[in-house]
Design a protein around this nucleic acid. Structure first.
Lengths: 344, 344
DNA sequence: GTGAAAGCGCTAACAT
DNA sequence: ATGTTAGCGCTTTCAC
């Protein structure tokens, strides 16, 4: 550790008091143009940087936001993070990451965020404990859940309307003339998968639910094996996969056995992965409202900084609609909306 | 902002001096078991959390590490980040993210990291300015570049040995009996693409270099158009794509025109994306040494914390070998190494 | 427009 | 084993 330059030294070099240096940095109070310039020069000459730690301590407000996250291989998480980080950068707040190796570490991580005087927490993984959220909220900090509820008064949560999308999937498959339909729901404990499946089943009586151990392409391929093992007469001819990975693995598995998509099985996935638009798949899917979710979070953060504080958001979760992307895997004769084919 | 609880209040509640509370938190100095317990109880009762900001200020060492990054859609970046964040979490240091919306913001971001008294900077995007790196290093902080050099004495850098992999790609295509070979190098200003292409060309005289505007599947498909536009006699029969996205788009483009892979064109990509192993592609590729890169960075950070400081690393970049993943797109009769097929 | 003085919440000698 | 005393580097009244 080398001796650090302090604002006092800058002040002395510029022939002013430390208070003036502070005023120049914070922009609060009036400083003569000439003095300000002299101070900046002195700072540059000494290589001084404004110490954010010290400043935060005395003001009691650190321009810090905590982001609780987990495996970034998940598409929506990486996307959402990219945009959140870009926005925070622009807002001039520094994001601190709290990475959960295991889902059950999330509560501990959320608690940790308080040690750094962060303005609040954005949670993109795991579950938000009501008591914990409440205590953070009571400190005047915010708690924002992405694709997960924040069950506490004053908490904010946005997410994809999975159930509505599920219902829409059922409707699309019906419109494509499919009668025996099924949903690949992912693991029984998958929140998103469960919601999508419930919406699907709710809109289509008689739909069957197939759980898979995970939500990878390999799990989709395994589901294809199961499909092939069914007596031909009872095989579903329309399938909604809770995500694109599952759908892609399912397609690959079916094709290996000579089954045709969409002729033999119509298919729709979820996530609008880049791969869904690739030639071998041309997979119909749903695009998550990533931009809107991020905007929602940013708007909430912004609201908590203003006089009135955040609005009346009371533990409910704002549900944003996913956008159906119609592609040939659905086997719809003539999609009324043109295939947008846009990337996520 | 609500009135915050301080260690002094905890001390009073526990009937001790503030110093003891500090000792319990830092674990330095001896505290009687009973006293320690009393203090912890008081803290819990008051809902007090140790203030990391204040502690860091007085010790002069904040357990903070800056990570400069950019678009997380890039596969290796998301992978590397996941592991780095997990490791930092385990080390008990908090990662602060500095997100570069544009490559040319990187220098400014690296400079910013000093304001938070971070122990050092891990750079995963853009270029590291030598002067800037030098001044950070002189402050006793570390600078670690991932897949980019840190041109300053004491800086550390690890990355994939792109040139060696390029050479190996050429060799593999030769072994597959290909004579007219080419490389899809990506944009002329792509560092990784350029290195891979140079290694390829260096190992195979007569190889042609094709630049593409970007490195997406769409760019690969456009390259396929170009390939098809060539007179049949002069079309390359072996292609090395600087990444899997490009390769996949190229395959899709060729197939649409009835060209067969590997019969008409043998192909090898780079990155070992999950998609490379999917049935329609079964794309030979190279896996980046992600784990080793991360380990290198962690070891360097660890070294900088010890007495001797970091080793003699002097601006050079540690080059780690990419692992070839042999798959059917290469058209090798009998791969001597079994297809590992492992995911990245 | 500028300076002096008093802390922010904690830790680190140095005492005891 | 515990308490006392100075600060860390900055911001903020309150004077002038």
């Amino acid at each position: 550790m080398v001796k650090r330059v302090t604002s006092r030294e800058v002040a002395r070099a510029a022939g002013v008091s430390p208070a003036l240096v502070s005023r120049v940095m914070t922009g609060k109070g009036h400083v003569a143009e000439a003095t300000s310039a002299r101070i900046r020069e002195a700072a540059a000459a000494l290589g001084w940087q404004h110490n954010a730690l010290a400043a935060s301590m005395v003001t009691g407000d650190a321009p810090l936001i905590a982001v609780v996250t987990a495996r970034l291989e998940f598409d929506w998480r990486a996307q959402v993070l990219s945009r959140l980080l870009a926005a925070f950068e622009e807002m001039g707040v520094a994001p601190m990451m709290f990475y959960a190796a295991e889902e059950d570490r999330v509560a501990a991580l959320i608690a940790e965020t308080g040690r750094w005087q962060t303005r609040g927490v954005v949670v993109t993984a795991g579950d938000v404990d009501p008591g914990l959220a409440g205590s953070i909220l009571r400190q005047g900090r915010f708690v924002a859940g992405l694709n997960r509820p924040v069950p506490a008064a004053g908490g904010y949560a946005v997410g994809t309307d999975n159930a509505a999308a599920g219902a829409q999937a059922a409707e699309l498959l019906a419109r494509a003339g499919r009668r025996r339909i099924a949903v690949l729901a992912g693991p029984p404990d998958s929140r998103a998968g469960g919601e999508r499946a419930r919406g699907f089943v709710g809109a289509a009586s008689g739909a069957s639910v197939v759980h898979t151990p995970g939500m990878t392409a390999a799990d989709g391929a395994a589901a294809a094996e199961e499909w092939l093992a069914l007596p031909p007469g009872s095989r579903p001819d329309g399938v909604f996969a809770a995500n694109d990975m599952l759908a892609i693995g399912f397609i690959d598995g079916l094709r290996t056995a000579g089954v045709r998509v969409p002729d033999d099985v119509a298919l729709i996935g979820f996530d609008n992965l880049p791969a869904s638009s690739w030639a071998p798949y041309d997979l119909a899917t749903f695009a998550q409202p990533v931009s809107l979710m991020v905007e929602g979070v940013l708007a909430h953060i912004d609201a908590t900084r203003r006089p009135g504080g955040a609005g009346p958001a009371q533990g409910g979760m704002e549900r944003l609609p996913a956008t159906p992307i119609l592609r040939s895997s659905l086997g719809l004769a003539a999609p009324e909306g043109e295939d947008s084919g846009e990337r996520p």
